[in-house]
Every structure is written in C-alpha cells, then in structure tokens.
Design a protein around this nucleic acid. Structure first.
Lengths: 260, 260
DNA sequence: CAGTGGTCTAGACCACTGC
DNA sequence: CAGTGGTCTAGACCACTGA
C-alpha cells in the first residue's frame, strides 16, 4: 500500500499506454467508468488524469473525453555546421530553420513593430531598458502545426530609416543589409534554454500541458558591438537542434535547411 | 465572472508574487487561511495552488507550507566555440560542462555498467537494439544543487577489455583513449532537445513540477562509424547552452569550462 | 503537541459535444 | 437529448514538521 490510490491509477493507465493497450488517439475510459473500475471517487480519478496530463501523455477535451497523445515526431533544425576538411575549415551557419524530412515550413505572418526594449533584450543589445528597438516578428508552420516563433530585435540607431523598419522580406537577407549599413557581422553567440511556455506561447502553439518550449537567443556582433538579437521559440516536442562539428560521415548528416 | 474561481485565486496570488508582495522564499498563507480569504472550499484552493506549482512559481512541502520559489539563476555551459580569426579557423569543442560565474561543479558519482542498448542508443550507434553497450554514468552538482547527468555509451566491440569498462576516471580523456584504440574522432553531432523529466530525473534533480530538462545527445564519429554517444541531461531552469561562432568581442564571451 | 499539506469521499451543478 | 469533462462544496482522516 505504498503509493496513494491516484498514483496507482495513473501507473496502471500509463502502463496501458506504454504497452499499446491504449493506442495514440484512442479515448480512455470515461471518468465514471474509471470510478467504477478502480472503486475511487471521481476527484481521485481526476487527480490521476491530471498527473498524466502534466506528463504530456494524454489530453482531455470537454464533452469528448480523455485521449492518448500521439508521440511527437520532432524535426531537426541545423544550428550550425563546422567543417574541418583537409582543404581547411569551413563554417556554415544556418539559421535554425527546419531542414525537415517531410514537410516544408511556411511563413504565416510577418510583423514589424517598434517597442521599448525589455530587460533581457536590453542586456543582449547593450542598450538601456526601455530604449526603443525594432522588432521583426514572423512565425512558421509545419503543415498545420504552429512550430516556430522568430523575433528579431535591432537597436534603433541601426534600424532607423532603413528597410529593417518596413514590413516585408529583406532583399538578400538582413545580414547583408547590416553589412551595407556599415555593420558587418563578425560572429554570433547562440544561447539555448528551455522553459515552460507563457500564456501567449501556450495559445499560439496550441500546446497541451506538459510541453516545454526551446528558446534560442542568437546575438550577432560586429567587431565593435551587438547588432542584432534573434530569438527563436520552438515547440519542445517538435524540434531537435543539431550542431555539427568536424567531418561527419555523410549518412549521419542533417539536411541543409532551405535558404531563408 | 469569466474565469473559474480557482483561476481567480491563482491570478491573485500570481500578482502578489510578481509585485513582490510575496517575496521569493516566503510562505504563502496556509490553505485554511486561503479558504477563509477567498471563501472557497479547500479543494478549490488546492486547485489554484496546483496551477502555480505547475507553472514553477511555488513549491509545497508537507507539514511546512507553500513557498514562493527563487527565480533560478541559470549557468552557462559552452557547447562549442568556433573562431574565425585572421590567422585561420580554430575549433574549440568544449564538453557541455559548466563554465560558471559562481561555484564549481563537483562530480559526485561515477558508475560503469554493461546493459542492452535501448532503441534510441542503438539508432545513434548504428547497432541493433538489445546489443550490449558499456555505459559510463556520472553526475555533477553545483553547490548542493544536482545539475547535470552524463551517460556515455560505447559499442561493446570498442570498449570490451579496455579501460572504458572499468570504473574511475579515464587518464587523458576518453577521446584520446579511443584514438589510441584505432578510432580517432573526426567529428561529432550535437542534438539538443527539451522535454519533461521522467520519474528518475525528477527525483534526481529534486525538481518541482513545471521544470523541463534539456538533453544534449553528442554522437562522435571516426571516419568510418559512430564511436560514442554521450547524453547530457540538464535541469532546464539552471542552464543556458552557449555556442559561439566567429569573432566575438571579448566582453561578450562565455567563460571557458574547466577541463574535464 | 498544534499546524501544515496529502489523500480521499460523496455529491452537486454547469458547459460542452455529438447525435 | 445523453454523455462527457469542468467546477465546486463540505467534510474526513492521514502524514509530516517543528517546537
């Protein structure tokens, strides 16, 4: 009698999911059914279901039932590829945009805004909190799954009066545009973290409880200063970030992402 | 009357935490107190507290109370540094071990085991599921916080009869040992993902609900084949993985991690 | 010991879904 | 409409903590 009853119920259901007795997409017995089956009160059954929900195993929909979640098939995004070939080193720095096996990313929306810098943005760009920055937002779907949120932040003194302030795609890419403006990129730093989504991300990704997001902060520098911060927010269950160093036998390499 | 009562209670408490009325480490009012304050039943109050717990804002300890969590100060682990200096490229590939500002990592345990390969390990090492592999496990603390789990998997035909099969540290590192055995490393691939912790990780890291883990799978290759898989599991709230490419102004660079 | 959270029950009514 | 999950109540007893 070690475990509490709601744990035991959760364990039993988890086993049935792991063993395949309950397959992905299938409906679990209704709560009244579980009450009868386990001789527990409904609150106890619901405690067990809450556990499974928080572990990302099931999802419940009002009026319909509780369903076993499909295991997510993550896509691989290539962060960067560093070749150390006989003829010398070569650095290929792809954007963390999908190079996927099945399905093309689609950009759904692009927005340009001008807002005061948050504390975290200000720190990376080495400006004061509250200083104005230009944000270029876009988001990408993979099939019908919202997959990636991209926010690029530019210091106002760089972006003011340039194409960066206007909506629409940047011809030939923003890196080249920044170089033309006298701020050639000399390097960048990626900082990768994971956390639970905030309310906006939760809605946007249509997440169920128990799914984290992965955040990549890519800060680009000229020789003198930070010139851009790009923040990529991915669904944690849909992405694997790849980063290749050295010579990798061809069959193990990730696909090159589409140009962006 | 839009939101249910437990949401309203959670919102009120969340505001008090955000505004600083309830400071990190402080105890929330007891559940009976909240019952009186919000004129709700204890179950409803507990629903609200469960919400805050899942969002990583509070932690409850039986017999003591519910406490506001300290915001985690993440440490930065340097995944790799790629220099593109005038004198030529240089690739520094640090293990994802902490280069921290305050506190030194300590290795707490080392274990060596011999087990059948799981599906995911078999795939990376290109062997059959169930084939024996040697696992070298270790874990690191940062102060008194369990921080990092490392599992290295070696194919049996490489490790059999070598120092890899014995407990204790590998002299001069396992990369060099593998090279001496005729399997020089030519490159590696990092695959980075995030997910909710499993039960073992949950206990090990002493996590509260609402904290994901970050997993780095580093597969090392010789010219011919995979020779090692190292899996790093971090507390998601305690780490930022850094990855530097190009020339970064010195003051923006991460600390070099301690040799390992 | 008193006070805290952890577990559990039995029942009620509401909101949503598909038929 | 019947059946599902969503919310809520009122009360009970247990397990853990610190004084």
């Amino acid at each position: 009698m070690a475990d509490p009853k709601y744990q035991q119920i959760a364990d039993r259901l988890r086993e049935q999911i792991a063993s395949g007795a309950l397959k992905p997409g299938e409906r679990l017995p209704s709560e009244p059914d579980l009450v009868r089956e386990f001789e527990a009160s409904r609150n106890t059954v619901r405690l067990a279901l809450a556990l499974l929900t928080n572990q990302g195993l099931v999802v419940t929909r009002q009026g319909l039932g509780t369903f076993v979640l499909e295991p997510a098939r993550p896509f691989t995004a290539l962060l960067s590829r560093v070749k150390v070939s006989p003829s010398g080193h070569h650095v290929s720095t792809a954007l963390p945009v999908v190079g996927s096996a099945d399905g093309e990313p689609e950009t759904v929306r692009r927005l340009v805004e001008r807002v005061p810098a948050s504390a975290s943005v200000a720190e990376k760009l080495e400006i004061e909190r509250g200083d104005p920055v230009v944000i270029r937002r876009s988001l990408q779907n993979l099939g019908d799954v919202p997959w990636l949120l991209i926010n690029s932040y530019f210091p106002m003194d760089l972006a003011s009066g340039t194409a960066l302030e206007q909506a629409g795609e940047i011809e030939r890419g923003s890196i080249r545009l920044l170089a033309d403006l006298g701020h050639p990129q000399s390097g960048f730093v990626d900082e990768i973290g994971a956390r639970m989504p905030d309310a906006r991300e939760f809605d946007f990704f249509r997440l169920s409880s128990g799914t984290p997001v992965i955040v990549v902060n890519r800060t680009s520098y000229s020789a003198a200063r930070p010139i851009r911060l790009t923040r990529y927010v991915y669904r944690g269950d849909r992405v694997r970030l790849a980063h290749e160093v050295g010579t990798i036998p061809a069959r193990y390499r990730s696909a090159e992402p589409a140009a962006s």
